[in-house]
Design a protein around this nucleic acid. Structure first.
Length: 425
RNA sequence: GGAGGAGUGGCAGAGCGGUUGAAUGCACUAGUCUUGAAAACUAGCAUACUUUACGGUAUCGGGGGUUCGAAUCCCUCCUCCUCCGCCA
């Protein structure tokens, strides 16, 4: 959620940013917001005054009763009743204006960072670091990961259909072990990098979903448990970041570094065909997430650190990758700047997104009421950042495809102490 | 799931429906004292909105209600504790 002060003071910059994001009727929306806020203020001032009168009259009535002047008191009661009628009308109006304002504010996406290129689709994303690492020429016999999975018994989508439905893979045997190994590897790496490990709930309430920006609007992307009014998390970002909802930090608490492994649940509307084959896109997958809460002045420095961290993971796994700066059209609603990490999957001959690292600046913290006390003792919104480190299915897809040999799939060195085997056969 | 009890400031803990945004203690901050520290003493110490300012308003788990007036009464939801039942 953008700050009203930004909307009032940086209108031009905002309009530019909203145009970049193809936001329709931006100027009108901003005007409406400012008008609503003006109205909110004036009705609040009026309301406060009426309430203040009521309060002081009530006090007087109390005193009159105490001194036995019941008649005078009763006269004043009538007066208060009149005031009350007025104020309750005003209050209704005030509440209506406030909620309309809130709705409008929630509808505005974050202002993109100046470095975000204008664009409409992923085609317009900027490659900030092209292919890093080696792509092996596997020849024409190279098998995509779903065929390799059939050959070696790594995961089973049909079985998932039987148990649940499409998009719920069942990992088996060495495949299951590989999965667990990656989880442990990623968690160990994150811990070593100073991220505090959490095992959060996999369902969250509405407040949490709102805090990180999933609600309103994106309810369709989350699984919802109607009876208990809970949402299955689409990413660990939601529970982890919400740990600090309604918290006021001290400046020396920064940076807050958290990590967690969770399954992630996504309903994912649309898109069929080659894009969703095998593990490319599923409804349930495992991911290790890193989250940081940082001082506003240091958040971009932190974003770079987080990117470097993720690059390190990909290098350790010996996967060829590239880094993209998302264009305005591809940038998520809440993000100011996002870098995507893609690994090259040699048999599909395509790039697979395995991580997305974002700085949300104050967009989430404004909703979360996550603040810190600055030197002057004033509360100020902190910045939040997060990144996948990493999402498993596509890492597994790429590992299977890139490391296939005639006698099995080679496990990268760093994982062997976790898997206990160096080849899937 | 059933029966009771409870939710107040960073923590602990008061609070006959009427100057209670809230006693008191601890913690914290500043000052005095001290060579320094401790102790003692003095002062300050919730959040948000609003006002140029003085100030005003809201918030005592959430929401709603009664009343001239609610932390205090009523309804409802949530959470925690105790007991019973069920269960990994």
């Amino acid at each position: 959620m953008l700050l009203l002060s930004t909307i009032r003071e940086e209108r031009e910059r905002l309009l530019e940013g909203l145009a970049k994001r193809k936001f329709i009727d931006a100027a009108a929306t901003l005007d409406k917001i400012v008008a609503l806020d003006d109205e909110r203020k004036s009705s609040q001032t009026q309301l406060d005054q009426l309430l203040s009168e009521q309060k002081s009259l009530s006090k007087e009535i109390g005193d009159l009763f105490k001194s036995g002047k019941a008649e005078e008191a009763n006269v004043m009661k009538v007066k208060v009743a009149e005031l009350k009628e007025k104020s309750s009308i005003l209050e209704e109006r005030f509440k209506a204006v406030k909620s309309e304002l809130e709705t409008e504010l929630l509808g505005l996406p974050n202002l993109a960072h100046t470095s975000v290129p204008a664009g409409n689709t992923e085609e317009d994303n900027e490659v900030v670091q092209d292919l890093t690492g080696n792509i092996l020429d596997l020849g024409d016999d190279a098998m995509p990961h779903w065929d390799l999975s059939d050959k070696y018994g790594i995961f089973d989508l049909k079985l998932g259909v039987k148990l649940t439905g499409a998009g719920f893979p069942v990992f088996k045997g060495q495949g299951a072990r590989l999965q667990r190994s990656l989880i442990n590897f990623f968690l160990d790496e994150a811990s070593n990098a100073g991220y505090r490990e959490y095992v959060p709930p996999l369902m969250v309430n509405e407040n949490s979903a709102r805090g990180t920006g999933q609600l309103p609007d994106k309810e369709g992307q989350m699984y919802y448990v109607n009876e208990d009014d809970l949402y299955l998390i689409p990413t660990a970002e939601v529970p982890l970041t919400n740990i600090y909802r309604d918290v006021i930090l001290n400046e020396d608490d920064f940076p807050i570094k958290m990590c967690g492994y969770t399954p992630c649940f996504r309903r994912e509307a649309g898109s069929y065909g080659a894009d969703v084959k095998g593990l490319n896109r599923v409804h349930q997958f495992d991911k290790i997430e890193i989250v940081q809460v940082q001082h506003p002045e240091k958040s971009y420095e932190t974003l770079t650190q987080m990117c470097n961290y993720i690059e390190g993971l990909l290098q350790k796994l010996e996967l060829p990758y590239r880094i993209l700066r998302l264009c305005s059209g591809d940038l998520s609603f809440a993000s100011a700047l996002t870098f995507d990490f893609e690994v090259y999957s040699a048999a599909q001959k395509r790039w697979l997104e395995v991580s997305s690292v974002s700085n949300f600046e104050t967009f989430q913290t404004n909703r979360l009421k996550l603040r810190y006390r600055n030197e002057e003792g004033k509360t100020t919104l902190a910045h939040t950042l997060n990144g996948s480190a990493l999402a498993l299915p596509r890492i597994i897809a790429a590992l299977l495809e890139n490391n296939q040999t005639s006698d099995g799939i080679t496990i990268p060195n760093v994982l062997r102490k976790y898997t206990g085997f160096d080849k899937i056969k």
